[in-house]
C-alpha cells in the first residue's frame, strides 16, 4: 500500500562515511608508460615530417611545434599524476562508488541492482604489473557505465565474484 512516512535524513546511509579505497599505486606506472608511448609516437611522426615534408612552415617552425607538443604533453602528464590520487572506489552492500578527477571531481554511484553485467579486462601492460580493469555495464546511457582501472588482479576477481553473485541472486 501507499505509505509516506518521514525519513530521518541523518539515518540515511551516507557516501561521506563510506571509506573510499585508492586504486593500486602501480597503475600510475601503467599510465605513465602509456603516455610516454603516445608522446614518442607523436614526436616520431613530427620528426619524420621534418624529413619528408618540404613545406616551409614545417621546416621553419619545427622546433616551435616540437616544443609545443612536448609542453602540452607535460602539462597533461602532471595533471594526470596529480589526479591519480583522486581515483578511489568502494564496494558497498548495495552499490559501487567510484570517484575520480582533479579539475572536475566526480563521485559516481551505481546500485548493484542496476548492473546488467560485469567484465574484467586486462591489457598487456596491465598484465605485466598484475593489474586489471573492471567494467560495470548498466542499461543507462554510455555515460553511466563505470570503468574502474588499476585494481590488483586478486581484488578485481573478488569484486567480480561478489557482484556477479549479487546480480545472479537478484534476477
Amino acid at each position: 500500500m501507499f505509505s509516506n512516512q518521514i525519513i530521518n535524513i541523518e539515518a540515511l546511509p551516507n557516501v561521506d562515511t563510506a571509506t573510499l579505497k585508492p586504486i593500486s599505486k602501480t597503475y600510475l606506472k601503467v599510465i605513465i608508460l602509456n603516455k610516454l608511448m603516445l608522446c614518442v609516437v607523436v614526436l616520431a611522426i613530427l620528426t619524420a615530417a621534418k624529413f619528408f615534408v618540404t613545406k616551409a612552415i614545417v621546416q621553419e617552425r619545427f622546433w616551435f611545434i616540437f616544443l609545443l607538443v612536448l609542453g602540452l604533453w607535460l602539462i597533461n602528464l602532471i595533471i594526470t599524476i596529480l589526479a591519480f590520487k583522486k581515483r578511489k572506489y568502494a564496494i558497498r552492500e548495495h552499490d559501487v562508488i567510484y570517484a575520480k578527477g582533479l579539475l572536475v571531481n566526480s563521485i559516481t554511484t551505481v546500485p548493484i541492482s542496476r548492473i546488467q553485467h560485469i567484465e574484467e579486462s586486462r591489457s598487456w601492460l596491465a598484465r605485466q604489473f598484475g593489474l586489471a580493469t573492471l567494467n560495470l555495464y548498466t542499461a543507462g546511457e554510455s555515460g553511466s557505465d563505470l570503468n574502474i582501472s588499476g585494481l590488483p588482479h586478486d581484488d578485481a576477481r573478488q569484486v567480480n565474484d561478489f557482484i556477479s553473485a549479487k546480480i545472479n541472486a537478484n534476477s
Binding site: V15, L102, L103, V104, N105, S106, I107, T108, T109, V110, P111, R114, T138, A139, G140, S144, L146
Partner: peptide, 11 residues
C-alpha cells in the same frame, strides 16, 4: 528508474 547518480565538482 535511476541507473546511476553522480556528484560533480570542478575546482
Amino acid at each position: 528508474k535511476i541507473q546511476s547518480v553522480s556528484l560533480k565538482q570542478n575546482i
